Amino acid sequence: EVHFESHGEEQAMRVVKMLKKRNLTVEVKVENNKWIITAK
């Protein structure tokens, strides 16, 4: 499981795309203006 924190939507979306290319399940949450990305 991979956790990634991002402060910007643009950066977060880039990471999500990259993770999805690896056929991982990606969950995105926004907490306290931080984008929290979890990949399994």
Rank of each mutant, 00 (worst) to 15 (best):
E9W: 15
A12Y: 05
K34Y: 07
L19M: 04
T25H: 13
M18N: 05
L19K: 01
W35Q: 01
G8R: 13
F4R: 04
K20R: 13
S6H: 06
F4D: 04
V2D: 04
T38R: 06
R14Y: 08
E27C: 14
V30K: 10
E5G: 05
I36N: 02
K29P: 00
K40E: 04
W35F: 06
R14K: 08
M18V: 06
E31M: 10
E27F: 12
K21W: 12
N33M: 07
E27H: 11
T25S: 10
R14G: 03
V2I: 13
I37M: 02
R14I: 09
E31A: 08
L24P: 02
K20Y: 06
H3G: 04
H7W: 14
T25G: 03
M13D: 03
E31K: 07
E1M: 13
L24G: 02
I37Q: 00
W35E: 00
S6M: 15
W35V: 04
Q11G: 06
V2W: 15
V28P: 00
A12F: 06
G8E: 14
I37E: 00
N33T: 04
F4T: 04
V2C: 15
K20S: 06
V15I: 15
S6F: 15
F4I: 10
K20C: 14
E1W: 14
K21V: 06
S6E: 12
F4C: 15
K17I: 15
N23I: 05
N32K: 08
A12K: 02
K20L: 14
K21A: 13
V30A: 03
H3D: 03
K20P: 00
N33A: 04
K29V: 08
M13A: 08
A39L: 11
N32M: 05
E9L: 14
N23H: 13
K20E: 09
V2G: 05
R22C: 15
H3K: 12
F4H: 04
T38K: 07
V16K: 02
N23E: 04
R14H: 06
L19Q: 01
E5W: 10
I36D: 02
H7M: 12
T25M: 11
E27A: 07
M13K: 08
E1N: 10
N33I: 03
H3V: 14
K17L: 14
I37T: 01
E9S: 07
G8Y: 15
K40D: 03
H7D: 13
E9P: 10
H3E: 05
E31W: 08
K34P: 00
L24Y: 15
A12H: 03
E9I: 13
N23V: 05
V15L: 14
A39D: 00
V28H: 01
T38M: 07
E31T: 05
E5C: 15
N33Y: 06
K20N: 05
K20D: 02
L24W: 14
Q11N: 08
A12G: 03
E5R: 07
Q11M: 11
I36L: 07
R14L: 10
A12N: 01
T38Y: 06
S6A: 15
K34L: 12
V2Y: 14
L19E: 00
E31G: 04
A39S: 04
F4W: 11
V15W: 12
T38D: 04
R14C: 15
V30S: 04
V30E: 05
N32Y: 06
I37R: 00
K17G: 08
A39C: 14
V15G: 00
V2F: 15
K40G: 05
K21C: 14
G8W: 14
I37W: 01
V16F: 05
E9R: 13
I36F: 08
V26H: 01
A39K: 01
W35K: 00
V28L: 07
K40W: 15
K34G: 03
K34A: 04
G8T: 15
L19A: 02
L19S: 01
E5Q: 06
R14W: 11
V15Q: 02
T38P: 00
M18D: 02
K21P: 01
V28W: 11
E10A: 13
V30D: 02
S6I: 15
G8V: 14
E9T: 07
K29N: 05
H7C: 15
M13L: 08
W35G: 00
K34W: 05
V2M: 13
W35T: 01
R22D: 03
M13I: 07
N33K: 05
G8M: 13
H7S: 11
T25F: 13
N33W: 05
K29F: 09
R22L: 15
E31P: 00
M18Y: 12
H7R: 09
K17Y: 10
V15N: 02
E10K: 12
V15D: 01
E31D: 08
S6V: 15
E1F: 13
E27P: 00
K29H: 10
Q11T: 09
R14P: 00
K21L: 11
K34E: 02
V2A: 06
V28Y: 06
V2K: 06
E5H: 09
E31V: 13
N32P: 03
E5F: 11
E31H: 09
N23P: 01
G8P: 03
E27Q: 09
A39G: 07
A12S: 02
I36T: 04
Q11E: 14
R22A: 09
N33S: 06
K29E: 03
N33R: 03
M13N: 05
V30C: 11
A39T: 06
E5P: 03
K17S: 11
K17P: 01
N23M: 10
L24A: 03
K34T: 09
A39V: 15
I37D: 00
V2R: 07
K20M: 12
K34C: 12
S6G: 09
R14N: 07
N33G: 15
K17D: 10
N33H: 07
N23T: 04
R22M: 14
W35L: 05
R14D: 04
K21Y: 09
H7I: 10
R14A: 09
G8S: 15
K17V: 14
N32V: 04
N23Q: 07
A12D: 01
L19R: 01
K29W: 09
V16R: 03
V30Y: 14
A12P: 01
H7N: 11
K17E: 12
E10T: 08
R22W: 14
K21Q: 09
V16I: 14
I36M: 05
S6Q: 07
R22T: 04
M18A: 10
V16D: 00
E1I: 13
V28I: 11
Q11F: 11
S6Y: 15
L24T: 02
A12R: 03
W35I: 06
T38N: 04
N23W: 15
I37F: 02
E1L: 13
S6N: 04
V15S: 01
V28D: 00
R14Q: 07
K40Q: 09
K34I: 14
H3P: 03
M18W: 14
H3M: 12
M13V: 04
K21D: 11
V16G: 01
E9F: 15
V30R: 10
T25A: 09
H7A: 12
K40A: 08
T25W: 13
E10S: 10
I36P: 00
V30W: 13
N23D: 05
M18L: 10
Q11P: 05
K40S: 11
E10Y: 11
K34S: 05
E5T: 12
W35S: 00
L24Q: 02
E1R: 11
K29Y: 10
N32L: 04
M18G: 03
I37L: 02
K40N: 07
E27Y: 12
V30H: 10
L19T: 01
E31S: 06
V15A: 04
E1Y: 13
V30M: 10
N23F: 15
V16W: 03
H7G: 07
N32H: 07
I36H: 04
S6L: 15
R14S: 05
V30F: 15
I37H: 00
T38L: 06
E27M: 11
V2L: 14
T25Y: 12
V28F: 06
N32T: 03
E10I: 10
H3I: 13
K17C: 15
R22P: 01
Q11L: 13
R22G: 07
F4L: 06
H7F: 14
V26G: 01
T38F: 07
K40P: 03
K17R: 13
V26E: 00
I37V: 09
T25N: 09
N33P: 01
E1G: 10
A39Y: 10
K40Y: 14
R22K: 09
I36W: 04
A39I: 14
H7K: 09
F4N: 04
